[in-house]
Structures are given as structure tokens and as C-alpha cells.
Amino acid sequence: MMKLGKSTLALFVLLPLLCVIYLSVVSAWTYPLLFDAEFSLKHYLVLFSGESELAWSFVQSVLLSLVMATLGLLFGFFVAKEIAFSKYGSRLLKLAFYPYMIAPVVLGSMLQFYFVRWGLSASFFGVMLAQSLFILPYAVLIMSSFWSENILQLFKLGQSLGGDAKTVKRTLLYPLAKPWMLLTFAQCFLISWFEYGITQVLGIGKVKTLSVISMQFLKEANPHPAAVAAVLMIVPVLLTFIILYRWQNKAQGNWSAIAPINNSLSHHPKKVGA
């Protein structure tokens, strides 16, 4: 019973990944061909042909997500601090949920007019701005769980032991915040990496991130390049996470690896399905 459950679960989780990998290496895939289909790496080779839209799309996605993650981290770190120690902190903080909970595609449609008017649509910068609308508030949500009374106490303690503000920041604040910062960075990266709705609406198809381009291939009923796009979306992130996970576990005790994740997951949901 237990074993059956386990394998069902494993299958449920693995099937989609295996499916996209499989689709990315077959061609002329007519029903009912399965393992007797034609296997080749030709859909990948296109990536290196120089003129490949997909390769450019990958680069653009990476750039966009890195920029968004960095912005999210900086904004989240400093704004969360002010909010955490403000009189209306918790009430203000809840405002961050609003832009985050509206479906991006609807938010984008409602804002399209302004973006067009101000010449922001169809540009990398415009998409950046559009994603900022919900990524920045979200970053504040995550980082605010770091800025507790406890952290403030530790900070003062550091000072009373003789460190000036700069030293205490370097020796206490940043090392303590590191796991949260890493989490904020990673989450913002992923939200941007996954985003489709607002990027499509306000990018008018010109800003071709991986999710936009894989949807385009999908609409052409061209599953193989779409699968390559999906693999490009999943596998590098998967590898990065495995490496980070290993490194985190080795470099530090359990404290840092677990604390913020438990903390923030229960308060702030990861963006999905929208």
C-alpha cells in the first residue's frame, strides 16, 4: 500500500519532466509512435545556429529574471525594515498582497493603456516595470519576516559589545539576513522566470521570454521546440537549486537553511497558476 502510494506520487511528479525531455528529443511524432519514434537532438542544435530565437529568448529570460531578483532583493531588504519598525507595519505590509493576488494577465490588461501611452509597452524595460508591480511588494513580504524584534535586539547587542553600525551590519546583519536574502532572490527570480500573462500582454509578444515563446510554439502545435523551451526553463533552475542546496547544507548549520523557508512559506504563498 505504502509502496504503491510512493510510486504513484513519484510518477505524478516525474511524468511531466520526463514528458518534456522526451518531447524535446523526438521528431515526426505521430500516433501511436512512442519509443519507435525518431530520436534526435536537432531541436537543441537549432539553439547554437546563431540566429536562434530560442537561444536569444533564454538569454533574455535570464537577464530579466536576474534584474528582477536583484531589484526585489534591494527593495525588499530596505523597505521591509522600515515597515517592520513602523507603527502601522503589519497593516501596511498586508497591502503588498493586493497587486500580488490579482492575475497578472488582468492587471496587464487594465494597465495596457498607460503602458502604451507612456511608450513602455513592447519593451524590456516596460516588462521589467510591469513585473515590478507585483514582484517588489512580494519581496517585501518575504523580507519582512526577517526584520523581527529579535534581529533588532541582536543588532543592539552587537553595538553594545563595541561594534559601530557599519561593523555590526557587516558581522551580524548581513550574515543573518543571508538566508532570507537568498530566498527573496530565488523567489523573485522564479516569479519573473515563470511569468507569462503580464509579459505577454504588455510585451505585445516582442519581449520573448521562455514562457512567452513556449506558448507561441504551443499555439503552432509545434511541441518539440516548445519542449526545448520548457527544458530550458526547468533544467538550469533545477541544477542551480541542487547545487545551492548542497552548498547551503555544507556551508552552514541547519539554522540558516531552514529558518527562513519555514518562516516565509507559511506566511507568503509562492505564485502559481497565474
Binding site: L15, P16, L17, C19, V20, L23, L190, W193, F194, E195, Y196, L210, S211, S214, M215, L218, P223, A226, A227, A230, M233, I234, V237, L238, F241, V272, G273, A274
Partner: peptide, 14 residues
């Protein structure tokens, strides 16, 4: 690690 687009796509073909 699945974007909704990727998950929808993958499950469609499953």
C-alpha cells in the same frame, strides 16, 4: 520549478 505554462504544456502531452 515548473512554470504554469510548462506544467500545462507537459500535462497536455501526457
Amino acid at each position: 520549478l515548473f512554470a504554469p505554462v510548462a506544467a500545462g504544456f507537459a500535462w497536455y502531452y501526457v
